[in-house]
């Protein structure tokens, strides 16, 4: 079990959890509606069992990904965590302010310290994306704080 890593467990655990949750929701279906997903679930479980056997026999030990440094892991986590945190306040912030804050936070987290870049890219991205999606693609992007300021 020396090669067992938390990252390596994410995919099989997600697949297994999804399959269980799926059948917890879909157990009462008719035969026609049940057959295909049932066959897929059985195939998936068999393949995962095969994968486990292969792992235990250390067949894949040479394909383990390189260990990630704490600094890189932090950068990767921030790329996901920062937008997620800001997305929780999507309606309140509005699309424009969300992009401005998210780009600024991501740039800072990834090591940008030049004032011109920190000022121009967030503002430019916010204006460009807001115009593109609101005006051209007619997406209903919430106004949020910008709406309060304009009114």
């Amino acid at each position: 079990m020396k090669n067992l890593s938390v990252g390596g467990l994410v995919v099989p655990v997600t697949m297994l959890s999804f399959t269980l949750a799926y059948w917890w929701q879909a157990y009462g279906l008719s035969f026609e509606a049940r057959l295909f997903p049932l066959a897929l679930s059985l195939a998936l479980l068999t393949l995962m069992a095969g994968n486990l056997v292969q792992f235990l026999r250390h067949r894949d030990s040479r394909q383990q990904p390189e260990k990630t440094s704490r600094h890189i892991a932090r950068r990767r986590a921030l790329v996901v965590a920062l937008p997620v945190l800001l997305l929780l306040a999507w309606s309140q912030l509005g699309g424009f302010v969300f992009v401005w804050l998210a780009v600024l936070a991501l740039q800072w987290a990834l090591g940008e310290r030049r004032p011109i870049s920190l000022a121009a890219l967030p503002l430019g991205s916010a204006v460009a994306l807001y115009l593109l999606f609101s005006t051209l693609l007619h997406a209903r992007v919430p106004m949020g704080l910008l709406g309060v300021l304009v009114n």
């Binding site: 997305l87 998210a102 090591g111 890219l121 994306l129």
Partner: peptide, 15 residues
Amino acid sequence: PTRMLIPVLLMLSIF
């Protein structure tokens, strides 16, 4: 620099 590419592409993906 990825510090410029990642934020812009991520926002484009979200929108």
